[in-house]
Nucleic acid binder design. Sequence first.
DNA 1: TATCAAAACGCGACCAGCACGCAACAGCGT
DNA 2: ACGCTGTTGCGTGCTGGTCGCGTTTTGATA
Lengths: 145, 145
Amino acid sequence: MSSTVDELVAQLRDGGSRVTTARRLVLTALVKGADHPTAEELLVAVRTLAPDVHASTVYRNLEELERLGVVVHTHLGHGAATYHLATEAHGHLVCEVCGATLEAPEDLFEAMADGAKRRLGFELRPYHFAVLGVCAECAATARND
Amino acid sequence: MSSTVDELVAQLRDGGSRVTTARRLVLTALVKGADHPTAEELLVAVRTLAPDVHASTVYRNLEELERLGVVVHTHLGHGAATYHLATEAHGHLVCEVCGATLEAPEDLFEAMADGAKRRLGFELRPYHFAVLGVCAECAATARND
DNA sequence: TATCAAAACGCGACCAGCACGCAACAGCGT
DNA sequence: ACGCTGTTGCGTGCTGGTCGCGTTTTGATA
């Protein structure tokens, strides 16, 4: 399930990319860090081990890693994009009130994807942008006001 | 169905906001202009009639109009937000390849919304962010390569 | 192991999209 | 017509991200 840094580095080599310190550290941060890091958060993590790594290096590496299919990015709302390993791709539900992020059950999008495909010929890729709404707690709070 | 500028102006007054030239022009641009204008596009439209209106005025007016429930904004992808009248609110499907924007049929989100509500207590508001994917034409093109 | 082209890096400048503080102005209740 | 206060124009600042440049590093080859 969870990839090791070495496996991801191997993917880099297979893709014809070079393996640098910064790149390895970005991958390490993705494997070991919190669940939905932004580029900024990854930069901070990388800098704890290599303080001179530049922000643009992290951005360019994430771009390259995405091109190789190693990572994907998701927009959870108005702010910065978040990154995770492609092997962990999944849909997101984000609460507009409290900002909580839920991972969507795999089959939640199925009916909608089927409908869009059948009726419009449109192939849904619902992982790139989160679907917003109001989480159970915030909905309950709102009802008690 | 389609609101007139005068009706919208009345909503402004009811909400306790003043009616200014800039505000009236923003509403006019929303009623008469293209379907999914960005703030920038609205600014251009407004300036054809009142060249000195400032960008921040348009942003602030859109914010205020949204607070009053007259307009809503939607994110169709990576770029700027798009605005439309609240009476015309609807879901969007956006093609990641060609950028085409489809208005989603009203019931397309229903099954998904039901599932999210029942299983997670999460109330979907699928209008704020578009759902991305690949449109029929681009999917066909891809298959023929 | 030394060589060397190409890839990647650090750095700074720059961009879009938008928010904000301030002084001047204008809507509208009186 | 007056005056309170919401709104505007303007500049400035912020976030999130891209780009061009000169230098450093990687890793295939000799």
